[in-house]
Design a protein around this nucleic acid. Structure first.
Length: 938
DNA sequence: ACGCTCACG
DNA sequence: GACGTACGTGAGCGTA
């Protein structure tokens, strides 16, 4: 019963590619039991189709339906503009083989399935929608893609399948600020970072809509651009006319394609139960097969219970930990057996044992491997014999160890094999050890980072914590094997028998954690975070750490002596004033001198505060207050500054200069800070002095090699820019767009002072408020920071909220979200858990402020992570190395002639680091500096 | 081992 | 109405 498409017909057009991606990201990575074929996205796709079919009834039911797919990656738009969609991230490996299966699935449902080489799905949808409309029928486009909104109107609507919300002309106005017929004009101006459509720089949807509404359409706007009052906008439009016109062509859908089929071919038909059941059975989907069989009233086909893989015979928790079950591998034949098992599996948990914790110095002692829970081995390679454990510490090797070179030669192909995943707990350590042995371990997975992606804020991510929490098992402690203090030994002195039990267990634990975490990443919706911002950072940081930065010992040593002299002088003066000798470095003794013996009182009349131990508090803020009464507190402050600089920097830093490289090699912890920031240890190179003139000179010791320069690139006001975006503060966004001094602008706005009459002091107050907002401001905190009465501080805050109402809303919304979900999120999807957010008592205040700060600090951290991950490819070929990261700054060492190239490439990566995942309303700006040392470069 | 202090963003 | 309070880190020193 053929019906000619026409009045009374209703065509549904389903955006198939969107279905696929949503299915892929929403579901854990299922594989087909019998052969391991990835089918998670297919399963999700089938479920979505089934739900669609079930819901397609009643008055609104479709008479005609088609699922439309993209085909190929090169379209006519690429011929117009080669950068079109150029920043798309590659399709995930395990999704690729599922694409054809979704076509098969669609056909199995007996739904028309259309695609055309050289065109995007959107063009086919546009053409069909026009044809159907012209024939007098209705159209519903099942998609939430905003690019399709230009098609709405005259009986064409969209249906957002996620929110189950229909979008009509009013919905378009809500989204774009203009009706459907002007959507392309707005898109042409605003551009689109996802599709890499350039648009007009600095113009977003809001401004674009404003302009289009004022001038009627894009062409009139461009013709009359000279009339625009705002100079920035006027120039942008005039300068970028060609680019805007190109953008319009890119976003304009082709509604006049020649199709090889007609609307009548799309009539809704019932599926053939045999075909559909056959497909579902082939995919080995049990649940959905049964459900659909019930709906169709047919018998569900039996799905062979395929022989489960060996690792699934016993659930992981059923296998206990048995240290005696671990194998000691001592010859090539035994190792070959393990290598065969690894290749068969395609993955292996690896752990290295070394002579120390500093991976720049430590030597490899042994390697453990695990491919299945409970079955692990340890390969001892450099254990010393027990006989050598005498006073003379002879270096005789223990019996029964493989030749280290032979072992590495056998393992190298496996460790470098792209088809074998190497799993570790804190793989940065192990990859660095292997890198020094000329083995490039890849690809990797890291259980520490998986936990970080899921559990940041809940607990730390060390192996002991993870094993206890997630496996219910306390790992063998290392302490008894190594001892502690002076008598401590290194791992190569641990007897091989003991080492096997300890070391192999670590690999066993790691493998079990991985098996547990891998599917949980999807459940927790942090797979993308893990795969784009944690895991890829490992090789990047490993490279930076291995490279290190050159530090000039003589400079430090000279400064150290100068500090010592000055300190001695101050010390004498201080003790004179105190009337007796005492340890100036002891806060306890100092407090007693100041408050008890000298009888000083706080200028604010309050009694001196004390800490947990009951000792007077003598922090810098207290001494600063006391300095108005007496000369000694100032001397103490000076002495403390010198003492800090000397002990923590000029002295300690010298100890960290690597004897072989002459450079300092910090270590970054990827999973240390809850917000996504890195932390630097051993030494911490993220807190080298800069704020005081004397301290800043320490940076002169961080030097470039002969013929090279240090280059520093730092994000300008990144956290405030992110705040402006997240909280939607238009005034702030505009100020950044116009390049205005942001603190001065805030001051002007709050205190009604024109910008040209701004005083440094008013600006300073506004700056403190801006930062206060990022930290979850309170009247008390601001008052203390600015040393003003609390009431006055509260007045500032009230006024700030009044002038920038979006801030208040952001804070309230963030806390409400945290209370509801027990986590907050960055723009890139990083989750920061806030387990204390619903606690009662003083904890609550801390948790709230942390929750307000985390999305801002965390988003900034995500941005620079993304930049760092892209950096190696971007500067490849340049004689330049990325050395350090200091939260919003990257430090490079570059050959003199290549500075401009490096700055250009690195700035480009940094300023565009949020693309394509997030389109920021505020552009990121990067400042650059260069010089012979870090002081000059900053 | 822990608290205090202070260096950074 | 009182209670405490800026966010995130790491290191060195003194004290227990």
């Amino acid at each position: 019963m053929e019906t000619k498409f026409g009045k009374g017909c209703h065509l549904h057009l389903i955006d198939g590619s969107a279905f696929i991606f949503r299915a892929y990201h929403a579901l854990p990575p299922l594989t087909r039991k019998s052969d391991g074929l990835p089918v998670g996205a297919v399963s999700g796709f089938v479920n979505m189709l089934q739900r669609y079919v079930e819901g397609n009834n009643g008055a609104d039911a479709a008479t005609h339906v088609a699922v439309i797919f993209d085909k190929g990656s090169h379209t006519f738009r690429n011929d117009m503009y080669d950068q079109y969609k150029a920043n798309r991230e590659a399709m995930p490996e395990d999704l690729r083989p599922q694409i054809p299966l979704t076509r098969v699935a669609t056909k199995a449902f007996n739904i028309a399935c259309e695609e055309m080489e050289g065109f995007e799905a959107d063009d086919i949808i546009a053409t069909l929608a026009h044809q159907a409309r012209d024939a007098g029928g209705r159209v519903t486009i099942v998609s939430s893609d905003k690019d399709l909104m230009q098609l709405i109107g005259d009986g064409v609507e969209m249906l957002d399948p996620m929110k189950n919300k229909r979008i009509d002309g009013d919905g378009v106005v809500e989204k774009f600020g203009v009706g459907p017929e002007r959507v392309v004009d707005v898109q042409a101006l605003a551009g689109d970072s996802v599709d890499n459509v350039p648009g007009a720089p600095g113009i977003g949807i809001k401004t674009a809509a404003l302009l289009i509404n004022e001038y009627g359409d894009l062409e009139s706007l461009l013709d009359r651009a000279g009339e625009i009052k705002q100079p920035k906008r006027r120039e942008t439009l005039i300068e970028n006319r060609a680019q805007i016109e190109l953008s319009k062509k890119l976003v304009q859908l082709d509604c006049d394609m020649t199709l090889e089929f007609g609307l009548d071919d799309l009539e809704v038909q019932d599926p053939d139960p045999d075909v559909l059941m056959g497909f579902l059975a082939e995919m080995e989907f049990r649940t959905v097969t049964k459900r659909i069989a019930d709906k169709l009233g047919v018998e569900a086909p039996a799905i062979e219970a395929a022989a489960p893989a060996a690792s699934e015979v016993a659930a992981p928790e059923a296998v206990g930990f048995d240290p005696d079950a671990y194998e000691c591998v001592s010859d090539a034949a035994a190792l070959q057996v393990w290598i065969d098992r690894i290749r068969e599996r395609g993955y292996v948990a690896v752990d290295t044992e070394t002579t120390g914790l500093n991976e720049m110095i430590a030597d490899l002692v042994g390697i453990s491997l695990c491919v299945e829970a409970g079955q692990a081995c340890y390969i001892p390679l450099a254990h010393k014999s027990a006989a050598s454990d005498d006073l003379f510490g002879s270096d005789e090797m223990a019996e029964g160890q493989m030749d280290i070179a032979e072992c590495l030669a056998m393992l190298k192909p496996v460790l470098e094999d792209p088809a074998v995943i190497k799993i570790g707990q804190n793989m940065k350590y192990d990859t660095k050890i292997f890198a020094r042995l000329d083995i490039d371990v890849t690809p990797i997975d890291d259980t520490m980072l998986m936990s970080y992606a899921m559990n940041a804020g809940k607990h730390n991510h060390g192996m002991d914590t993870l094993s206890e929490r997630y496996l219910g098992h306390t790992p063998i402690p290392i302490k008894p094997l190594l001892g502690s203090g002076k008598s401590a030994i290194t791992f190569d002195r641990v007897p091989v028998d003991d080492a096997v039990k300890y070391a192999a267990e670590d690999a066993d634990i790691t493998l079990r954690l991985w098996q547990q975490f891998k599917p949980q990443l999807h459940v927790n919706r942090v797979t993308t975070v893990y795969e784009t911002m944690e895991r890829p950072l490992v090789p990047v940081l490993a490279q930076m750490e291995r490279h290190g930065i050159k530090v000039d010992r003589d400079t430090l040593s000279r400064m150290s002596n100068a500090f010592a002299q000055k300190m001695a002088g101050l010390e004498d003066e201080i003790q004179q004033m105190a009337g007796r000798p005492f340890n100036v470095g002891s806060p306890k003794q100092l407090g007693e001198i100041l408050f008890d013996e000298m009888g000083l009182e706080m200028p604010d009349g309050k009694k001196p505060s004390t800490g947990k131990t009951g000792a007077y508090s003598t922090g810098a803020d207290v001494l600063e207050d006391l300095a108005t009464l007496h000369d000694m507190p100032r001397r103490i402050l000076d002495w403390r500054q010198l003492s800090k600089l000397k002990s923590t920097y000029t002295d300690a830093l010298q100890e960290h200069i690597n004897a072989e490289t002459g450079r300092v090699h910090t270590s970054y912890s990827i999973a240390g800070a809850n917000t996504g920031r890195l932390a630097s240890t051993d030494p911490n190179l993220q807190n080298i002095p800069v704020r005081s003139e004397e301290g800043r000179r320490i940076r002169e010791a961080f030097v470039a090699e002969e013929g090279k320069v240090i280059v520093s690139l730092d994000y300008s006001q990144i956290e405030l820019r992110i705040l402006a975006h997240i909280a939607g503060i238009d005034a702030l966004k505009q100020a950044f767009l116009d390049g205005i001094d942001i603190h001065a602008m805030t001051a002007s706005e709050m205190f009604d002072v024109p910008l040209d009459e701004m005083t440094p002091d008013i600006r300073r107050q506004a700056k403190a408020i801006n930062f206060g907002v990022i930290y979850g401001i309170s009247g008390f905190g601001l008052a203390r920071n600015l040393r003003i009465p609390r009431g006055e501080a509260q007045g500032f805050i009230d006024r700030y909220f009044e002038r920038f109402p979006g801030i208040r809303k952001y804070m309230d919304d963030t806390i409400a979200f945290a209370k509801e979900n027990n986590y907050v999120q960055t723009l890139f999807g990083r989750k920061i858990n806030t387990p204390e957010i619903n606690a009662k008592g003083p904890h609550a205040g801390f948790a709230k402020r942390a929750a307000i700060n985390a999305p801002i600090q965390g988003t900034a951290a995500d941005v620079i992570r993304r930049a760092m991950i892209r950096m190696p490819a971007a500067i490849e070929g340049l004689p330049a190395k990325m050395l350090l990261q200091v939260h919003d700054e990257l430090i490079f060492e570059v050959e003199e002639g290549a500075v401009d190239d490096l700055v250009g490439a690195a700035r480009d990566v940094m300023e565009n680091a949020s693309d394509p995942a997030v389109k920021l309303d505020v552009k990121l700006s990067v400042d650059a500096g260069q010089g012979a040392n870090w002081a000059e470069a900053h």
